[in-house]
């Protein structure tokens, strides 16, 4: 019988990652006033572009589904707020006014914020920053990921994660010759649950999946 540790025990504590990377150190060399000004410019650009884009870009509009407020701030005095109108599918941006946001991403310094937001690996850096307690997320980390996705609709920094070439061997449509000894029953496509199966409709209405889509508040993933 194998015993615990008979597999190679992980050496996970032997080489912790560096808390502050060279990239972040480089941004930290900027004088604070310069960094703050540059960050205000960057956040201001997103503040100026995102709202009108939310009026005419269907890709952005379809993702604005709830009314919420997101702040990005630094401890050295830079702050920007985005307010999302779910029913209207609009965004607007202001300086941070009174009232707590629903979600916030807070940095210690403007240099740190620039290093993170202008990185090709923003989400990784945010996670690392939160883990090492150099950054703070208030509210949901998933909303931060969602917001980051919206900004990438304006300016995409870094490639999308995934294979660089299409993986081979895709199975894209039914092929009965591959069913083997079993027969897969395939019937014509339908677009909706049989309306006469009322018991199924009643049961389905209890599921969180359709309830979440109907606007009912649901927990995060």
């Amino acid at each position: 019988m194998s015993s615990p540790g008979s597999r190679r025990a992980p050496s996970a504590t032997s080489s912790p990652r560096q808390d502050v990377t060279a990239w972040e150190r480089a941004w930290g060399l900027l004088p604070r006033s310069w960094a703050a000004s540059l960050l205000r410019l960057v956040l201001g650009l997103f503040g100026v572009v995102l709202p009108p884009a939310s009026r005419w870009d269907p890709v952005l509009r379809r993702q604005i589904t709830r009314s919420l407020v997101v702040d990005i701030t630094t401890d050295d005095g830079v702050a920007r707020r985005w307010s999302f109108d779910g029913p209207g599918r609009r965004a607007r941006s202001t300086t941070v006014t009174a009232g707590a946001p629903d979600h916030a991403l807070r940095f210690a310094t403007s240099g740190q914020a620039l290093a993170t937001l202008l990185s090709t690996r923003t989400v990784d850096r945010v996670v690392a920053g939160v883990v090492t307690q150099r950054m703070r997320i208030e509210g949901s980390a998933f909303v931060v990921i969602w917001f980051h996705g919206l900004t990438r609709r304006i300016v995409r920094i870094g490639r999308r994660r995934g294979p660089r070439v299409r993986p081979p061997g895709a199975y894209l449509s039914p092929d009965p010759s591959l069913d083997g000894d079993e027969t897969i029953t395939r019937e014509p496509a339908v677009t909706v649950l049989d309306p006469t199966w009322t018991d199924a409709w009643r049961a389905r209405a209890r599921l969180w999946m359709p309830r979440g889509g109907a606007g009912e508040p649901m927990p995060e993933p």
């Binding site: 379809r62 969602w146 508040p217 649901m218 993933p221």
Partner: peptide
């Protein structure tokens, strides 16, 4: 598809 919360859209 266009009605889920931001958290789920992720």
């Amino acid at each position: 598809v266009d009605r889920y919360s931001p958290e789920w859209l992720c």
